[in-house]
């Protein structure tokens, strides 16, 4: 049985325009990989395609979550299979409390006829909220409604902690965060690092990678991975800027 999130030769289009053009990378369990790249390179498209957003059409390639072909599953099945996407722009769900939302997500993972143990659920949720420095009042508030940018991102990490995926993709989780919030979010992610779990961190800036130190860094440009290296690659990228990518790394 393979133990990785493996993307192979992935091609995807939106409204007939090809955005992903044969992307290949593999995140073995236990590793943290980062994808960096300039705006418009297709980073967010990659995350949405993996989650199963219907606006994107996969024209070629596979995404394997261990031995499961993710692309053959419905959106909700992907999540239940162990895939998690922390959204760049989490949606607001008016009138649905955070606690009820999380509970429904947990309930969806139970066999028919079984109910979430409410007491244990709240206990666990409170504990994880404490870790993220989230006030208890967020349990009763509507999902993401009126949350600041930082609160929304923290809420995404809380969901990840509660759903304990096998593989998590974090899409620009650092955007809109001040340094304190960034540290807390990073701490949440680091606490979940384990030999049983893989992470793919999509980011525009190197800053986040000071706090979540990656094992591997990929550089993405024009729908493909054009360079892969160690954590120093992120620093080099930061120093030389994305011009370096477009001018020197892109094969002619």
């Amino acid at each position: 049985m393979s133990q990785s999130l493996k993307i192979e030769n992935l091609h995807a289009t939106v409204d007939g325009t090809e955005i992903l053009k044969g992307l290949t990378l593999e995140v073995p369990k236990g590793e943290v990989h980062a994808i960096m790249g300039p705006n418009g390179s297709g980073k967010s498209t990659l995350s949405k395609v993996m989650a199963g957003h219907e606006a994107y059409t996969v024209t070629e390639g596979t995404v394997m979550l261990d031995d499961i072909n993710l692309l053959e599953l419905a959106i909700d099945e992907r999540s239940r299979a162990g895939f998690f996407l922390a959204f760049q722009y989490p949606h607001e769900i008016p009138g649905v409390s955070n606690a009820n939302f999380l509970r429904a997500a947990r309930q969806a993972r139970l066999p028919k006829g079984e109910e979430v143990d409410a007491v244990a659920f709240y206990k666990e949720m409170y504990l994880k909220m404490d870790e993220l420095g989230m006030d208890r009042k967020f349990t009763g508030r509507s999902v993401n409604e009126g949350f600041s940018g930082g609160e929304k991102k923290r809420n995404e990490i809380l969901q990840m902690m509660m759903l304990e995926p096998k593989y998590a993709v974090l899409d620009e989780t650092d955007s809109g965060l001040d340094i304190d919030a960034l540290k807390i979010v990073a701490q949440g992610v680091n606490s979940m690092r384990s030999p049983e779990r893989g992470f793919l961190i999509i980011t525009h800036y190197q800053r986040l990678l000071d706090y979540i130190v990656p094992d591997v860094v990929h550089v993405m440009f024009d729908g493909r991975i054009i360079k892969t290296g160690g954590k120093d690659l992120a620093l080099e990228l930061e120093e030389k800027g994305y011009d370096w990518v477009t001018k020197e790394l892109v094969p002619a």
């Binding site: 419905a74 999540s79 429904a104 997500a105 969806a108 969901q159």
Partner: peptide
């Protein structure tokens, strides 16, 4: 709906 589905909740 996508957001909820992405957390494992059927449509």
């Amino acid at each position: 709906i996508f957001y909820l589905q992405a957390r494992g909740i059927p449509a």
